[in-house]
Design a protein around this nucleic acid. Structure first.
Lengths: 226, 226
DNA sequence: AGCTGGGCAATTGTTGACAATAATGGGGGC
DNA sequence: GCCCCCATTATTGTCAACAATTGCCCAGCT
């Protein structure tokens, strides 16, 4: 009988473990509690996360590997500032990798998943017609996640997830662009249709076309913004 | 990536820095001095790398993020064992990302680089005709590196480099397959021609066809091997 | 006033020791 | 003889203190 290692055992010293700190800090950055360019002082994070500098340091190193923070020797860490050019690059890579995922999904889709895809498609159309942008954005994420789940491509998954984390801020800006849902809805519907139809090439093409239009929208924001 | 700017300053006290340790350890793993599944005991690495456990630990964390080693809590680190299925997955992602790179290269190639491409193409043909497999393998790497350099896509570069590191062992096996150079030479030549001709779609298609055949070869090895 | 240089405070880099955990091997019971 | 349990050992996880570096502020000079 194994005693619960976490609840009973009082490690005498309080303090969250390195993994917890890493996840908490990632969430905080993704939520925008720390803005790009903001310095991440180790001592401050120690009190915020209720842990030791050792764990903070490990967490920062991990997030640096993920591309969320940037550490300079003897100068500390700061939230990485991704330029629009980088955001475009990242989205380009996402385009081709998600294309691969869509193709695999079209090969591996089963009736249950196909039904789920349809449901999301219907909900998306309703959300757009009702002008519920926030809801549409959530469904968008659910669709991409479901496609990835169907494909079951662990390597591609990991990469897409890492890349997505790096540009959450830009994606947020994107969702505010007026007319964006109306543009992307038919693209999403084509992706769903292609996967349902078990047509890998069409699914890849549809996904790439979709994300390609995301890139165009990003570039458009760039013009307006700066 | 950018080389560490601080190479001049020697911190007086012995012991290599974390970055040096990371690079050295990566080289050692890639060279096969540590085999997949082999345990990487921190204390041993300390003496091997002439540094402190702190740096060893940081290096291991970095390499874990790169996918070269695997760390289990309280159980230490070991060289990651990539299954053939994973190697195929990794190469699939490489296929689409290098396809993107080839397309960009076709857009951005200049006369000087075009000449370099031609030179590599000529040397490759000679190497195959002379049966110099080792030389051909080197040229293969040079070709892919040059294409990436022409494309100048930092994000895609980083990903391809990371993925490549994870399957060096499998790639080595691949180079031993008889008849492999004869298969891949015309593929390489098509890639070069497409980039020279500034035809992005053709370049992407050629690159994907090439790496697709690499995947087939990997699968073939799998049958024979196990 | 603007610039240069030195000292000071804030922050990070590093170390060694100690605690907690998993692996190992030996002794006793069946 | 074989198996299980417990002590021992090897290894990793964590910490707090110390050393080194950077950037800043201000005095003094041109």
């Amino acid at each position: 009988m194994a005693p619960e290692p976490s609840t009973e055992r009082r490690p005498a010293r309080a303090g969250n473990t390195a993994v917890q700190v890493r996840d908490a800090l990632r969430d905080a950055i993704l939520k925008g509690e720390y803005l790009p360019g903001e310095r991440l002082v180790e001592a401050q994070l120690c009190v915020r996360m209720e842990t030791s500098r050792f764990n903070v340091r490990a967490a920062l190193a991990d997030l640096a590997a993920e591309g969320l923070v940037e550490v300079q020797r003897n100068r500390g860490a700061q939230v990485r500032k991704v330029s629009m050019a980088e955001a475009v690059e990242i989205t380009e890579v996402r385009m081709v990798v998600e294309g691969l995922i869509a193709a695999r999904a079209a090969e591996l889709v089963d009736p249950d998943r196909a039904t789920e895809l349809d449901e999301i498609g219907v909900l998306m159309r309703r959300a757009v017609e009702a002008g519920e942008h926030r809801r549409y954005s959530d469904l968008n994420q659910r669709l991409h996640a479901l496609v990835r789940e169907i494909a079951g491509h662990a390597t591609a998954d990991r990469i897409v997830e890492t890349l997505r984390g790096q540009i959450v801020r830009h994606q947020y800006m994107l969702s505010l662009v007026p007319g964006r849902p109306e543009t992307s809805l038919p693209q999403h519907e084509r992706i769903i249709a292609a996967i349902r139809g078990r047509d890998p090439k069409a699914a890849e093409a549809a996904m790439r076309e979709h994300i390609s239009s995301v890139i165009e929208a990003l570039r458009a924001i760039d013009y307006l913004g700066s």
